[in-house]
């Protein structure tokens, strides 16, 4: 298993190879994919990408937490969190690829 990290740059490079656009424009398009997903989620919308997965915004209610260091009780305000549910295809490809 060769550990490496894919970044925006690698995605832009893949788009550049796939479509006849400049590297610059390829990078901008990768950015706009991420921006549109983020905007929808920030607006409380869920984002469902078939054969990839679903991003859902969940609302968590206020609760009492505890400072683990001091043991002191502190209120935790209500918040929205993001969950990602991978598609079947993603689960299968990730599992099969890593077992090889």
């Amino acid at each position: 298993m060769s550990e490496s990290t894919l970044t925006r740059m690698d995605l832009a490079e893949a788009v550049f190879r796939e479509v006849g656009l400049s590297r610059n424009e390829s990078a901008e398009l990768v950015e706009s994919v991420l921006r549109h997903i983020s905007d929808a989620l920030a607006g409380g919308e869920s984002v469902k990408i078939s054969s990839f997965g679903t991003f859902n915004v969940r609302t968590k209610s206020a609760r009492m937490g505890r400072n683990p260091k001091t043991g002191e009780e502190v209120p935790i305000s209500p918040r929205r969190v993001l969950t990602f549910r991978p598609s079947h295809l993603m689960k299968e490809r990730v599992d099969a690829g890593n077992k090889r």
Binding site: S4, L6, T7, A14, V15, V30, V33, S51, A96
Partner: peptide
């Protein structure tokens, strides 16, 4: 159709990287 390919490539590359055991780090996004 090019926009479709671009969007498809982004998602496909993310899956492909994970299938190879790699991480995908998109600062600010996740």
């Amino acid at each position: 159709r090019d926009v479709e390919r671009i969007v498809g490539t982004v998602f496909d590359q993310i899956i492909e990287a994970m299938a190879e055991g790699n991480r995908v780090e998109l600062r600010g996004f996740g």
